[in-house]
Amino acid sequence: MQIEALLFDKDGTLFDFGKTWNVWCAGVIRHFADGDADRGQAIAKAIGFDLATQTFLPSSLAIAGTNREVAEVIAAQLPNPDVDAVDSYIAHAAARAPLAEAVELAPYLTKLRDHGLKLGVMTNDTEMGARAHLTHTGVYDLFDLVLGSDSGHGAKPDPDPLLAFARHVGIAPERVAMVGDSTHDLIAGRAAGMPTVGVLTGMAGPETLAPYATVVLENIGEIPAWLGL
Rank of each mutant, 00 (worst) to 15 (best):
A164N: 06
M178G: 06
D181F: 04
I90Y: 08
A76M: 06
H136L: 08
T126P: 02
Y108G: 08
P159E: 11
P98D: 05
E127F: 02
A155H: 13
A64N: 10
P81D: 05
T126W: 02
D144T: 08
Y108F: 15
L78E: 08
G189Y: 02
E69V: 14
M122Q: 03
L78R: 10
A85H: 14
A132R: 05
T66N: 07
D84P: 08
D160V: 01
T183A: 12
D141L: 05
A102H: 07
L109H: 00
E104Q: 14
F143V: 11
D160F: 00
I90A: 10
R113N: 08
A130E: 01
K118A: 14
L99M: 05
F165M: 07
A106Q: 15
G193M: 03
A76G: 05
T123K: 01
A164H: 12
E101C: 03
A130Y: 00
E69S: 13
R68F: 00
A100D: 11
R68G: 09
K111C: 14
T135P: 04
G65D: 06
A75W: 01
A166D: 08
H92C: 04
L109E: 03
A166I: 14
A177P: 10
R113M: 10
D87N: 15
T126E: 06
A76Q: 10
A97Y: 02
R175L: 06
P195D: 04
V73G: 09
A75L: 09
M194S: 12
S149P: 03
